[in-house]
Design a protein around this nucleic acid. Structure first.
Length: 352
DNA sequence: AATTCGGGGAA
DNA sequence: TTCCCAGAATT
């Protein structure tokens, strides 16, 4: 008997592909919603390879929700150091405390309740709901958008909002036809391994027969391309102030990148590296010290950060006008979370 | 609806 | 270089 329902054909082929293409990951070995939640947050906009070791270290340090809730935010941020999108770590901590304080320490088991936790959006809520509780909520991530856009020829008329809605509705239909956990795993793996963004090998694809993009030579323009983002150049002067046995660090608090992380005292300047706006106590020393020749660099999604450093030694008492500035001896620096750029500087300067 | 949050891997 | 990654929150 032939089953010609396109949706059923798709899921049948997909699950068959999945059986022949296992992709083991540490977080797939558990049904613990806490661990699944942690893994999914780590994987937000983050490749599996990049998140792998962070996940293992994170659940080793914070093995359950109660441990996470009772830990300090500083410790959580430290575990996140280098991973990026640090709001994830702060929301993780906030949600853990909410679960302990308001939900009796029990991870919520309904999609809407999961969705209401800070840092959990539609994707992560569906992932936890399906993987931990076998609920029929379809995940919609970059993989799913790409796979369904190509296979069913969905483009949202070029509008990303409409496209996402179309994909979501299609995924909700499809997931009814199979075990939800297997479907979600399968479609993401398929997108990551076979239906890849650039030049997928469609001739070898087991699902090409009814694939719209393959049959219409549209794999290159489905899904529609995101519009390019332009990067802004920024120029930081970091001050490495050796004071007695330690150095000074400060916490970033502005509505800006790297919020709540630490850095060397920093002064932003222009493309000419003007030192006109440096504080007086530094200007007075500029006759003896100077900007480093070396320029450190870090590319972010919307910004290009360039940094040079000023190194100075002083044992004079220093006025610390802000409560974000603190003094640390080298042995204590491991307690603070730094952005990658600052880590590179500290390493290059043999501080850590 | 558009922007802004990191950092890295692959081509 | 460019694209985009098991997205979410804010504007």
């Amino acid at each position: 008997m032939h089953n010609e329902d396109p949706n059923a054909v798709f899921t049948g082929l997909l699950l068959h592909w999945h059986e022949n293409n296992p992709r083991p990951m540490p977080w797939k070995e558990t049904l613990d919603p806490y661990r699944i939640w942690i893994s999914e947050v780590i994987l937000q906009q983050t490749r599996v390879h990049q998140g792998w070791d962070y996940y293992l270290a994170f659940i080793k340090k914070f093995p359950d929700n109660k441990t996470l809730a009772q830990s300090s935010l500083a410790d959580v941020l430290k575990a996140w150091e280098g991973l990026g999108y640090y709001t994830r770590a702060r929301n993780l901590h906030k949600a853990a405390k909410k679960i302990e304080d308001e939900l009796g320490g029990k991870f919520p088991q309904l999609y809407k309740q999961i969705l209401s936790l800070p840092g959990i959006g539609p994707y992560t809520a569906a992932a936890v709901a399906s993987f931990a509780f076998n609920l029929p909520n379809a995940v919609v991530d970059g993989n799913v958008i790409r796979v369904l856009s190509r296979y069913f020829g969905l483009d949202g008329n070029g509008d990303v909002g409409i496209l996402k809605k179309e994909i979501s509705e299609k995924a909700d239909k499809l997931i009814q036809l199979s075990p939800s956990s297997a479907f979600n795993q399968a479609i993401m793996n398929f997108g990551a391994l076979q239906c890849i963004p650039h030049k997928p090998d469609c001739t070898k694809c087991q699902m090409n027969k009814a694939c719209f993009a393959f049959n219409h030579m549209r794999t290159n323009d489905l899904p529609p391309k995101k519009k390019k983002i332009l990067r802004k150049n920024r120029f930081f002067i970091y001050c490495l102030i050796h004071h007695k046995k330690g150095i000074f660090i400060e916490q970033r608090t502005n509505r800006d990148i790297w919020q709540h992380l630490y850095q060397l005292p920093c002064f932003e300047t222009d493309e000419n590296w003007s030192t006109d706006n440096l504080p007086v106590f530094l200007k007075e020393k500029m006759s003896k010290v100077s900007l480093s020749e070396k320029i450190f660099h870090q590319t972010l999604t919307h910004q290009n950060i360039f940094a040079r450093i000023i190194v100075l030694h002083t044992d004079e008492p220093l006025e610390t006008k802000t409560d974000t500035l603190r003094y640390s001896e080298p042995n204590n620096l491991h307690k603070f979370a730094f952005p990658k750029l600052v880590l590179n500087i500290l390493q290059q300067q043999a501080i850590i």
